[in-house]
């Protein structure tokens, strides 16, 4: 088991590559979701402000 995780003598290189992949994947998902939420909330607050003004 440990031998499999060691990746010969290249463990640090292999695991940091896959770690970076997961970081980028998570960052992409978080960014995409928060951007949609931000747009939605912006419009929502503007529409509500407009409605309460009239």
């Amino acid at each position: 088991m440990m031998e499999m995780l060691a990746m010969g003598k290249y463990g640090a290189y292999v695991w940091s590559s896959f770690g970076l992949m997961f970081i980028v994947m998570i960052a992409c998902v978080v960014q995409a979701r928060s951007r949609h939420r931000k747009m939605y909330q912006q419009i929502e607050s503007r529409l509500k402000a407009m409605d309460s003004a009239t």
């Binding site: 990746m7 010969g8 290249y10 290189y13 292999v14 590559s17 896959f18």
Partner: peptide
Amino acid sequence: DAFRIIYV
């Protein structure tokens, strides 16, 4: 094993 970086 270094070749496995290819998968990313």
